[in-house]
């Protein structure tokens, strides 16, 4: 009973923190660049996809303000991506944006 209580106490004190870390799976992070400059927006939301169908992954970055999307084409290789200056995502009615908030 007392062992059980001790286990519960220790477990409770651990809270909901994750039990183990797999941080070793990942290399230290690097900040992505485009045309030699660090990519900088207002709150970035990245996504990669072969946007132009050339067999290389391009980078799409959503931004909080003004709710638009930047497209960085991969001008490097599939193994070593390099990104060109961004163009903005457009629809048939102008720049494609979503409301923020």
């Amino acid at each position: 009973m007392s062992v059980h209580f001790a286990l519960v106490w220790v477990a409770a004190s651990l809270g909901a923190a994750p039990q183990q870390s797999t941080t070793g799976e990942l290399a230290p992070p690097v900040r992505l660049q485009a045309q030699g400059e660090f990519i900088q927006t207002h709150h970035a939301a990245p996504f990669v996809v072969d946007w132009d169908g050339d067999g290389r992954l391009d980078l799409l970055v959503g931004e909080f303000t003004p709710g638009g999307l930047r497209i960085y084409r991969n001008v490097g290789t599939p193994q070593e991506p390099k990104f060109a200056a961004p163009v903005r995502f457009t629809t048939t009615e102008g720049e494609g944006r979503v409301p923020t908030g």
């Binding site: 990942l26 290399a27 992070p29 990519i39 927006t41 909080f64």
Partner: peptide, 15 residues
Amino acid sequence: QIAGHVWLFLRREVK
């Protein structure tokens, strides 16, 4: 200045 960046974590191994 409020700014957002994109960080890349390459995978070393698949556990």
